[in-house]
């Protein structure tokens, strides 16, 4: 391939530079193309995707019952040990002893949101919440107890 001549080089160079400038100029004169989100201002309307993994939550129904049987599948499935389940023996109405959760400890600071615990749960007791504003000034606040005080397992969930 023949090298372009002196003046041709200048012409082509200036042309290529002007092409680039035209492009940035287009965006400069078209502020509607702006693509940034005004985050703290749009908090009211900001909705995360429904599958977005922000934290592990344990839904409770209106009678303060959850679906966790304390089988510890999630604890085993968690690759980095951010779940710790403390169980207790509960005596039910028929006088039988049954395993139930005492505290469901969730270490948000260690969690990588890999979703493996949710997949592992046989009773769909836990799911991923969409909250993402997790910043706190005290690290101990990231250690959460997911089962609410006084809650118990929904009857029929085995």
């Amino acid at each position: 391939m023949k090298e372009p001549g002196y003046f041709k080089t200048i012409y082509l160079s200036v042309k290529s530079l002007l092409t680039g400038m035209r492009m940035t100029g287009y965006y400069f004169t078209h502020p509607k193309e702006t693509h940034t989100e005004q985050y703290p201002d749009n908090r009211a309307t900001l909705k995360m995707m429904d599958r977005f993994r922000g934290e592990v939550i344990m839904p409770h129904d209106e009678t303060n019952e959850h679906r966790c049987t304390g089988c510890q599948s999630c604890e085993i499935a968690c690759p980095n040990g951010s779940i710790k389940i403390i169980t207790k023996q509960e005596v039910n109405a028929e006088g039988k002893k049954k395993k139930a959760i005492d505290t469901w400890v969730y270490h948000l600071d260690m969690c990588t949101m890999c979703n493996l615990c949710i997949v592992a749960c046989p009773t769909d007791a836990i799911k991923m919440g969409q909250k993402f504003e997790h910043s706190v000034f005290d690290k101990s606040l990231l250690k959460k107890i997911l089962n609410e005080p006084g809650s118990k397992v929904k009857s029929g969930v085995e």
Binding site: M48, M49, R51, F52, R53, T112, C114, L116
Partner: peptide, 27 residues
């Protein structure tokens, strides 16, 4: 990234693949 977030649940570290397939169906 939005597509990833919608289907996989995360934008960068998706962890969407499991042995035998994918974790859940596409959105």
């Amino acid at each position: 990234n939005d597509i990833m977030e919608e289907t996989c649940g995360a934008r960068l570290t998706q962890n969407y693949v499991v042995p035998g397939g994918v974790m859940f169906d596409i959105h």
